[in-house]
Design a protein around this nucleic acid. Structure first.
Lengths: 185, 185
DNA sequence: TGCCAAACGGAGAGCGTCTCCGTATAGTTC
DNA sequence: GAACTATACGGAGACGCTCTCCGTTTGGCA
């Protein structure tokens, strides 16, 4: 036997699909693994066979997210406008992408320096996106700024916005402060 | 007797003292209530009689903190220097004040908009401190900025710095970005 | 000294993540 | 199509957490 058994593949797919809906609805901490298992019609053992931890499951749920991050940074960098406008657009998109996934922003941001986190792939993608921003906007940005620093700053804003359920205006204003700070000489 | 029974008072004091040491050492999530109870030599019921939730206990542990916040903002505003320098000094002190209390920054920052949080007193004090900054530095700051916004931005940086165990240089750099953004026209 | 409200201790309820292991089955082999 | 085996399944339950309930003890006053 060579590939994965058919029932296993079917179960895995269904678990991810169901879990995505539940997490989106209630947030990471608002959903229990038992709940996911029951909703997906599998036993706890099966769930944990596919995803060794709850965070690993969440990582799978956020799979599509990485592509969207790439698209957002592409779009922002392609805009006609100042460096500040590009930053604000990209940051805003990033926060929006995590909107509706309660708890995701904090988890990804806190995983930024941790090579053992289940979210490494997401972190790498996110850091890479900000590195591209630095590469393209370089001279317009504060000298010496790093992708890690930008990622942490914007991630921190996203996490607070998420946890405190801030409105778009409040988020935009905070991102404006960060963007201004990043383009300041 | 009029007020609290002597044994109750004694127990309360000992619990807070022991809990402070434990939380400082292992962080909020790293200490269980059972552990606090055992270390303080009381039963779980006694512990919960004095502090109805774990967060209420944490609030009591961070009691002295509020005075230090006030002192820090006083000191920073009294400095000779630019608005930016005053901001950086105050923000740095704020982050330092939460240093060593793993988990405190995130909890206080996320409680900023929540009137039911056990940390309301701390939030009020912190917001008040940033309001004083706005009152004194007013014209030098970005127009329309609010104490809530500053509190959230700096709190977000503090939370990430705490959770990712960032070094002083990394924190200073991030706070510099925020300060620049806040003084930008 | 006796009384009783106040405070105490700790068993255990309830909920969470995650593990273990006996059972069922997909897919191969003859 | 029947037998066989590696793979996957289900769910009881271990373990740890916050917090509650209630029978027992005790501080402080009459």
């Amino acid at each position: 036997m060579w590939s994965v058994r058919a029932d296993a593949r079917r179960n895995r797919d269904r678990i991810v699909e169901i879990a995505r809906a539940l997490f989106k609805d209630k947030g990471f901490t608002g959903v229990s693994m038992d709940e996911v298992a029951k909703a997906a019609g599998v036993g706890a053992g099966t769930l944990y066979r596919h995803f060794p931890t709850k965070e690993a499951l969440y990582d799978a749920v956020l799979e599509a997210w990485t592509d969207k991050v790439k698209a957002a940074v592409d779009r922002a960098l392609g805009l006609d406008g100042s460096a500040r406008e590009k930053l604000v657009s990209w940051f805003g998109d990033y926060v929006d992408l995590l909107n509706g996934h309660k708890g995701a922003a904090a988890r990804i941001t806190l995983a930024l320096g941790d090579p053992d986190s289940p979210f490494v792939a997401k972190c790498t993608r996110y850091l890479g996106a900000n590195q591209r921003v630095i590469d393209e906007l370089g001279p317009a940005l504060r000298p010496g700024v790093s992708a890690m620093e930008i990622s942490r700053l914007v991630g921190a804003v996203a996490a607070v916005a998420d946890a405190s359920a801030l409105g778009p205006d409040e988020v935009a204003s905070m991102l404006g402060v960060v963007a201004d700070g990043l383009v300041a000489a």
